[in-house]
Design a protein around this nucleic acid. Structure first.
Length: 191
DNA sequence: CTCTCGATGTTCT
DNA sequence: GAACATCGAGAGG
């Protein structure tokens, strides 16, 4: 297992979002391991990006994004959902990559139990995967380079032609230039 | 299959 | 008060 180190995250956010496709997200709960391959991400690029939580400056909620890269930024929205982001770029530059969808690899029975669902609806959305992996506010700020509780490691190498780009989802409030920016990355899996 | 709508709590105006 | 990087149930075609 080659866990991703701090240098992997301390790069251009779009590059990190692209590079995360095909990587393995791993969660350890009470000694048991859940894992899944990352198949969809979105880049949120700092204070100049009107879709990014940090674009209006530092607040108690988004302070993690201003910190060291390689940490998890977990936040709560819509009154019932958590979202998982990975902080990128150098400290002080508030950028992150949202994990939108993953493909379950191991620990599927536990995910089904937690989601109370089976099949494709398990982890194909940002709030769904957080529920399946039991990711909540307690993991906000977690250091992903420790290799405990939650981390990301190398898994599959993805050829450039398997990567699809598209505009980001659910950010109608952002300026047009940011709304339309192709900063969403998907893996063409479709067997 | 598509579309609409309610849930629910934290943050920001 | 309003908005929110969403989800799932239910209605209709």
């Amino acid at each position: 297992m080659t866990r991703l180190n701090r240098k992997f995250y301390e790069r251009d956010t779009l590059k990190v979002a692209r590079a995360l496709l095909g990587k393995k997200l791993v969660r350890r709960i009470d000694g048991r391991e859940l894992s899944a391959m990352i198949v969809e991400t979105e880049a949120y690029c700092g204070e100049a990006d009107t879709a990014c939580h940090a674009h209006r400056g530092k607040t108690p909620r988004n302070v993690i994004m201003f910190g060291e890269p390689g940490h998890a930024y977990v936040y709560f929205t819509y009154g019932m959902h958590y979202m998982l982001n990975l902080v990128t770029e150098e400290e002080g530059n508030p950028c992150a990559v949202l994990i939108r969808a993953v493909l379950p690899l191991t620990g599927i029975a536990q995910m089904e139990a937690r989601r109370k669902r089976k099949g494709t609806d398990l982890t194909n959305g940002p709030a769904k995967l957080c529920q399946a992996f039991r990711i909540d506010k307690s993991l906000n700020g977690w250091d992903l380079t420790l290799g405990k509780e939650l981390w990301v490691e190398a898994y599959k190498k993805i050829p450039a032609k398997s990567v699809i780009t598209a505009p980001r989802i659910g950010i109608f409030y952002a300026h047009k230039e940011h709304r339309d920016a192709p900063w969403r990355f998907l893996l063409a899996v479709d067997k």
